[in-house]
Design a protein around this nucleic acid. Structure first.
Lengths: 339, 339
DNA sequence: ACCACATTTTACAACGTTGCATCTACCGCC
DNA sequence: GGCGGTAGATGCAACGTTGTAAAATGTGGT
């Protein structure tokens, strides 16, 4: 079967420990010895047994990434970025899908699989701040997302409130006053929906525009179809609006499609902005203005912090919270009122 | 730190082997003993050490999935389906991205990481049939995709030619005669592009429609922007067409956007069909007719076959090729000529 | 030639688990 | 009462690696 240290040692005429030393770049090895070992390794096409190595060292070289669903573009693009980041640090990524289900999220935190990872990047969706004690786990954990703040672990996330306020301000600056919002979650305070709604309200308030509950479209999920049906409801209600802020791009694209079917022109009749800056937003008709929440930066930072924690000798360092920079991306779907 | 078999054994007052037997459902254990062990396991919150287990057993419980990029929706949806399938078999999935690069694909086949997986689902994009010898590896490997046929391994894929012919026939049955095709690859015979182009030509031929090279839009990649620019070129060339077959949905959505900008009506002026049946195709404007190539079935079958190979004692069984069923999905973007 | 000291190599024991072989106790049967 | 057989429990070795510590070898100075 596969060659082991013993085989290499036999061929090179040294002890297995010497082979191990060569592989691990131990400095004090005679060049001639090293060369013989290297040749034997090449001859046998030796590859270290990773199970044995991690049994011995307690490290696996794998980090976990838990997300709700890869078929949600935001998480697919996040996973892509995380894998590329991890690669640069010679780490592999094991992806788990939770479906956004609280129970599965909690289970996953203490699943035997945590054993095969050195640490976990955890994008919670079903859990909330009340559950934050579950995050007190015995391995390095970096939280992503906006469901839990002030928890016991490091946390890398986006500036939801600020970014949503900036998006709304962008619409206001174009002379829009009746700004519908799509994707709100009934009663939510913390969480992407709650925080972005808050940014929206702050922007309105700052501009002296009264908040009109009739302009809020609620959805449970953020799939395209939810955006579409929220918009259908909004149109059916007869409420007047001249702009839409969709709480993510996917929702917004669904809503746009319904508006266009209904004969509304975007951006002339309804200036529309989304959130996430998916690749897709560049190719819709019209192209979608949106907020880039700093996804690449989030992935990169989260991986870096997780690896720091893994390497750390003293795990008692206080939890850090990192907020990525965001950016409003103006495209065709938003334009000033020409009236 | 974490509890081991020894700890459990001490608490339960039995040998570690008995604990191991309980965990592995060895039949001959006195119920009272079993109960004591189970209680001790619960008390210590014991979880087996997976590194030790795989060192001993040679199995990891992990399968690898190599895809070009997760940010391509097709692969994100495929990965989602594979993970869900694997979950049902109590397996974990380790995802690797190759970027569709031939060299990286080849490297990955003999990477030390193969060590941490019991087998690999491999979606090749950069390699071609000339490289098929690289697939002769010492571990269970199931090939996905359409770059290599007749290779030495099991292969699960879609009926590209038939499905593309069916898509084209769908357009022809609606009275379309000038059918543009977008996303072809110069000179490719094998591969999604080459095979689907062949299906297109077969359909034309069967209908007695001459093949017009001016109607072929070439692209290197299949991102949205490639579809958009191919369509721009097509429009700039002045060639006349009354239908478009996009070789995948993403391309097609990019092309649709350019057509609409140019004032073409879909489906009236240009009946349009894609390929992949992405979630997104249900929410574009108009909704996109497309081909469902059987992605779920592919994921499920591939996982099943891989696990069979892993469990197999005699690995000499001849390679199998499985083709999933496809289905033309009619939506708003295709309609009969009303002349 | 011998010592002090640095370089190079090695032996051994673990990491936590499971396969194999073995051992004891007990059961039913002639 | 002795024997074969099965249920139930165990001890030992091994999977392939690396940390520790110590042994072997080499170098230079006296």
């Amino acid at each position: 079967m596969a060659a082991t240290l013993h085989d290499v040692a036999r061929i090179a005429g040294v002890s297995i420990k010497t082979v191990s030393n060569v592989i691990n770049d131990y400095p004090h090895i005679r060049p001639s010895t090293k060369q013989r070992v290297v040749e034997a390794i090449a001859e046998l096409d030796y590859q270290p047994n990773l199970s044995a190595r991690s049994l011995r060292s307690g490290r696996t070289g794998v980090i976990g990434l838990a997300v709700p669903e890869l078929s949600l573009s935001y998480f697919a693009e996040l996973a892509d970025a995380v894998i590329r980041s991890a690669e640069r640090h010679h780490m592999t990524v094991l992806i788990e899908q939770t479906g956004g289900d609280r129970r599965r999220e909690i289970e996953l935190l203490s699943s035997p699989r945590r054993q095969m990872t050195d640490g976990l990047l955890f994008s919670a969706l079903g859990m909330d701040s009340d559950d934050s004690e579950y995050l007190r786990v015995g391995y390095p954990l970096v939280l992503l997302g906006e469901r839990i703040f002030g928890g016991p672990t490091d946390h890398v996330t986006m500036r939801n409130v600020d970014a949503a306020r900036a998006a709304t301000e962008h619409l206001i600056s174009q002379g829009r006053r009746r700004i519908a919002i799509i994707g709100a979650h009934e009663g939510e305070i913390i969480g992407s929906a709650g925080l972005r709604l808050r940014g929206y309200r702050e922007a309105l308030e700052a501009a002296g525009i009264p908040f009109d509950p009739a302009l809020v479209g609620y959805t449970t999920l953020w799939h395209r179809s939810n955006g579409a049906s929220a918009m259908r409801d909004l149109l059916a209600s007869g409420v007047r609006f001249d702009a839409v802020f969709g709480l993510n791009d996917t929702l917004t694209l669904g809503a746009m499609r319904v508006m266009q079917e209904a004969g509304l022109r975007i951006p002339e009749d309804v200036s529309t902005i989304g959130f996430d800056d998916l690749d897709e937003a560049q190719y819709s008709l019209p192209t979608l203005s949106t907020v880039d929440p700093g996804r690449e930066e989030i992935a990169e930072t989260a991986v870096r912090i997780l690896l720091e924690r893994i390497a750390e000798t003293n795990p008692a360092a206080p939890p850090r919270e990192v907020l990525a920079d965001f950016r409003v991306v103006e495209r065709e779907s938003t334009v000033s009122l020409t009236a």
